[in-house]
């Protein structure tokens, strides 16, 4: 599984390479730059009862490519275009239990295509464009505040 996924990770670059024109590659260079590492500890600058505040690092990376490492929470459906990335493996299921909650520190990962999911307890690395701010998924009503768009992932 890991092999297939690490293949998909390079798909975007392959497409760019197939276009093959050198000016294009130059233009695409910022996207090819190594993504900035973002850890779960980096997410918040201030944590309080009256709200959390994203760190300066998160704010400055809004719209940029980042890489986060974590665990994939089991999704709503077996194949889905988004999943929730958590710092530690989920021991409850907020999609199933009426009173279970997501932790504060999650990122929602949007994939270009629906994917099947890796096993629980397996660490993954995710790369995508960071998007900061509240947004409701039109299909599922799932509200998120931190997203990785156009993301790919591989087993760490």
């Amino acid at each position: 599984m890991g092999k297939v996924l690490s293949g998909s990770r390079f798909r975007r670059r392959d497409v760019l390479a197939m276009i093959g024109l050198s000016p294009m590659i130059t233009l695409a260079k910022p996207a090819l730059a190594a993504p900035t590492q973002l850890s779960f500890d980096d997410l918040y600058g201030k944590i309080s009862v009256l709200g959390l505040e994203f760190s300066d690092k998160v704010k400055s990376l809004d719209g940029r490519d980042v890489e986060m490492s974590g665990f994939m929470a089991p999704p709503l459906k077996a194949e889905a275009k988004f999943f929730v990335l958590t710092e530690i493996p989920m021991s409850i299921c907020p999609f199933c239990s009426t009173d279970a909650d997501w932790p504060d520190n999650i990122a929602v990962v949007y994939l270009d295509e629906a994917q099947t999911f890796v096993q629980a307890g397996v660490r993954i690395d995710v790369t995508g464009k960071l998007e900061v701010g509240s947004w409701t998924d039109p299909e599922t009503g799932f509200l998120s505040r931190l997203r990785l768009r156009g993301a790919t992932y591989s087993v760490a």
Binding site: A73, P74, M90, S91, A120, G121
Partner: peptide, 14 residues
Amino acid sequence: EPAIENEKKEYVAN
């Protein structure tokens, strides 16, 4: 945290 969920929505030993 005794168990974690897998992709089949089954709980397995953490």
